[in-house]
């Protein structure tokens, strides 16, 4: 081979090696930065969620421990005042009835703000309670199957509870289903959650509407360190299938 040609070959080889190394280095850095960025975003989201949940708990406790008893006492005082009058007092009776309604509403709000049962009795009891509440206000048939033996941390239980809550809300609101089956199963350090309904499926919904709900569910799955797979077809129901690593 011509020495000149050999030099060219060498030059090309060295240049492509250098270029290759640079490109690989660049690609690896981009992936690394992206991964770091994703991790940072996730931990930021997790701490934001923790903050949100602790705020919700604080508000619920305030309603429960301070406003509630204060309203009860006010009710007692009003009924006492009414007793002391010779003639029945229309407006006092009205006020008393209003306070009762406020107390009932307050209870509902406190309950929706934070699932107390999750802390006292764990995820299974809290989910059972959540489903039971639906059973009493909706004609949809619910089935809950819980096959998780591992004890989940408080944070992880809450993430999963909220995720299931939103999935079921979505299904109830949009699917027009008669039956919703919820199945949580633990296998090989992974938690699998399936929520299956016999409703209309996705295609029948306007894209914007199902897009939002679905994105939010994808986000929740991602925050929990897992992912969501959604199988649906018009008229044949929807299945949401989450895979989430346990104890992350």
């Amino acid at each position: 081979m011509d020495p000149y040609e050999t030099t060219i070959y060498h030059a090309v080889l060295i240049t492509s090696l250098v270029l290759g190394t640079v490109i690989i280095y660049f690609a690896v850095s981009v992936i690394r930065i992206q991964r770091r960025h994703f991790e940072r975003k996730r931990s930021l989201l997790i701490s934001e969620i923790a903050l949100l949940e602790s705020e919700r708990t604080r508000i619920a406790n305030d309603l429960h421990d301070e406003l509630g008893p204060l309203l009860s006492v006010t009710r007692i005082q009003i009924s006492k005042a009414a007793d002391q009058l010779a003639t029945p007092a229309y407006y006092l009776e009205k006020a008393e009835a209003n306070i009762l309604t406020v107390i009932e509403r307050l209870g509902g709000i406190a309950r929706n703000l934070t699932p107390k049962l999750l802390v006292t009795k764990g995820l299974e009891a809290a989910l059972q309670d959540f489903i039971d509440q639906y059973r009493h206000i909706s004609s949809i048939r619910f089935r809950l199957c819980y096959e998780v033996n591992q004890h989940l941390s408080g944070d992880q239980s809450l993430l999963i509870y909220r995720l299931v809550q939103e999935t079921v809300h979505n299904a109830v609101k949009h699917s027009g289903a008669h039956q919703i089956q919820l199945h949580l199963k633990e296998y090989d350090k992974q938690l699998y959650i399936s929520c299956k309904d016999d409703g209309n499926g996705f295609a029948s919904l306007p894209a914007s509407e199902n897009g939002m709900g679905l994105t939010s569910l994808h986000n929740r799955a991602e925050i929990a360190g897992g992912h969501l797979q959604c199988t649906t077809a018009a008229g044949s129901g929807t299945e949401y299938f989450f895979q989430i690593p346990l104890n992350i």
């Binding site: 009924s79 009762l100 209870g107 406190a110």
Partner: peptide, 27 residues
């Protein structure tokens, strides 16, 4: 109890309470 907190009420009944009332009960 302040509100109808069902599981707390059941815990109390299981602990031996003979009954329960809401705090908004009448005289």
């Amino acid at each position: 109890t302040m509100f109808n907190e069902e599981h707390l009420i059941v815990d109390m009944i299981e602990a031996g309470a003979g009954g329960y009332l809401l705090k908004s009960t009448s005289k």
